[in-house]
Design a protein around this nucleic acid. Structure first.
Lengths: 217, 217
DNA sequence: GTCTATAGGAGGATAGAC
DNA sequence: GTCTATCCTCCTATAGAC
């Protein structure tokens, strides 16, 4: 560890490795590439990591602990009032997705995750349990409570969660792809809000009073 | 070319390379791996391809020409009656997505595409123009015609296309991931139909006659 | 067209001086 | 902890016999 805000070599290796892995893939990145970015010689990395795999493992394990999305869910859970607001909760979630697309660290993690999804069992398990299942479960309980409060129509909360989540994931992929090519993201960015608008209109408890959209609770 | 239905070595190299690339990634696959699967020696591949890159290029270029989804759109365009059926058109598209998840060749292409998306400019261009843009544009024109026929509510066709497409893409990813781990896909498979149900309910021209859902056409 | 053999190089990892 | 030097393995690609 170095003092004065400077990062330790260990941390710098992780940072640079993440950037390189996310750009060129794990196999496409050499220890020499990483060392060069860090500013040390290739052999120097082995003072901090046993081998290349250990760097990837450490990065993958850190993914779990740094989910800005789950933090948001936690803060929503802590505030019982939040569920009564209905659409604004969904907007907050969509906005978080949008902002994460522009966070360099999250972008790199996303790219790494996608690239290693089929090649790496650990990444796949992590994606499925901690990213997909966890987020959909959290969303599901939000929709369930909204149904209880008769804010939205009664239906399958888990299915709603899937339907709300999947476009957000997809739009984030689009934004990150556009950024990769240095293209404008302006049109893709509007998709997040529009998704919330369309989705909310389709689930909200009937403005069309007396319609077939009665809640069963 | 060999006679009698047997595939040429050239084609077998492409087939095996696609399978291996989709499992272990381009960089993670060696020429020896490919040769072993084909049943020839490593050097023999160079009688058919200049180098490893040329195999990938050929595979990538073939992706364009083999889109079962675009074939479906073409057949829909050829049948003017199809649009009047409304929901069944969407079901047909969703079912195609679902079936493609279980087509080995499509699955391999999907995996290859995802893995190379960030690493390979050509794959990225292809994904964006031929896969994303093209499909969304086709969907968009379907929704536009449905609006003209007052089958569905009036709104932005392009946005509807995005909202309809993105869950299908996402669910296909889930199915393929589950298959990768040999897990059951039964729960994921139902998502396709449920998506169509939910989506159609949210866009169809009002059953609630006289509501705020009037079409503007 | 496929084989063997090999060139040529890149990449991961270690040893030992400082 | 970082450096230099080196080892060794693995890989792509080529040359030439069959």
């Amino acid at each position: 560890m170095r003092r004065g805000g400077g990062k330790s070599t260990y941390d710098r290796i992780l940072d640079m490795a993440l950037m390189l892995f996310s750009e060129k893939g794990y196999k496409g990145t050499t220890m020499r590439d990483i060392a060069a970015k860090v500013g040390i010689r290739q052999g120097g990395i082995y003072n901090h990591f046993k081998n290349k795999d250990e760097i990837l493992e450490k990065l993958v394990n850190d993914m779990m602990k740094s989910s800005a999305l789950l933090s948001l869910f936690d803060s929503l859970d802590a505030d019982p009032q939040s569920y009564t607001k209905g659409k604004s909760v969904l907007s907050k979630i969509a906005t978080t997705f949008k902002l994460l697309s522009f966070d360099p660290k999250n972008e790199a993690l996303f790219r790494l995750m996608i690239q290693e999804l089929f090649r790496n069992q650990t990444v796949r398990d992590l994606y499925y349990e901690k990213f997909y299942q966890e987020n959909v479960k959290r969303l599901s309980s939000i929709f369930f409570r909204m149904m209880q409060d008769e804010l939205i129509k009664s239906s399958d909360p888990l299915m709603l969660a899937n339907e709300f989540f999947s476009p957000l994931f997809f739009y984030q992929l689009q934004v990150i792809l556009l950024k990769t090519d240095g293209k404008s993201t302006s049109s893709a960015v509007t998709l997040f809000e529009k998704h919330v608008d369309i989705f909310w209109e389709s689930i909200k408890a009937g403005n069309d009073y007396g319609g077939r959209t009665s809640t069963l609770f």
